[in-house]
């Protein structure tokens, strides 16, 4: 464990807490893509199959359980409790375009050809692009509530912090995880546009609005 990874994980944790806070305080899931949230639940469930047979640490175990539980809870909130506040007509990204290629890539690139390992690869590729329905929705509506942008910023920071973590591990532990690194760089790159607007507008006290 190094500080980059620790702060990355904490940022991930913070993003989920911000999202729950957004839903609770506005009593609405307006502006949140159900599809992205469903993809994240899929990512965690397919990645953490090792929960049942591989013990890493109490930290690792607790985080995995938290990510699976919170992502399912968010789906429940969106699907049932605050259902009327979600507008499916603007959440129109075709998730087949993400699920299909992720499955193909997982079959081509994995560390071992076993069910949990192929699912692990699948979850890595899927996570890299799972934010796209959310960013697509943002692009369509052209604006976002400030708290929603804080959620996205924390999520993006988590991904960004994993990159120095890998560089650090490469030098200190002589370790490299080519699948996670490649997908992680793609994933972080997807946030660049968002970060630009976040830093130049939201952090200057303005509303998140995309130019028309």
């Amino acid at each position: 464990m190094n500080l980059f990874r620790l702060f990355g994980d904490l940022s991930h944790l913070a993003s989920i807490i911000i999202l729950l806070q957004k839903i609770r305080s506005t009593r609405s899931c307006r502006g949140i893509s159900f599809k992205t949230q469903a993809l994240y639940a899929t990512v965690f469930i397919t990645r953490y199959l090792d929960l049942f047979y591989d013990w890493v640490s109490l930290y690792n175990f607790t985080m995995k359980v938290f990510f699976i539980a919170s992502s399912c809870y968010i789906l429940y909130l969106m699907r049932y409790k605050y259902r009327p506040t979600h507008d499916p007509s603007i959440d129109t990204f075709r998730v087949e375009y993400l699920l299909g290629p992720s499955a193909v890539l997982a079959l081509l690139f994995h560390y071992r050809f076993t069910v949990p390992e192929v699912f692990w690869s699948f979850s890595i590729f899927l996570e890299a692009v799972a934010i796209l329905p959310q960013l697509f929705m943002l692009q369509r509506t052209g604006e976002a509530e400030t708290i929603t942008t804080h959620y996205l910023a924390a999520l993006g920071a988590y991904r960004a912090l994993y990159i120095p973590n890998w560089i650090y591990r490469y030098f200190t532990e002589d370790m490299v995880d080519p699948i996670a690194v490649t997908a992680g760089i793609v994933q972080t790159a997807l946030y660049l546009d968002f970060f630009y607007v976040y830093f130049t507008k939201v952090l200057q006290g303005q509303k998140f609005e995309l130019p028309a």
Binding site: R47, Y111, Y162, M175
Partner: peptide
């Protein structure tokens, strides 16, 4: 460098 043998990251 060695490839990651087990998945200890989240």
């Amino acid at each position: 460098p060695v490839e990651m043998k087990r998945h200890d990251e989240l």
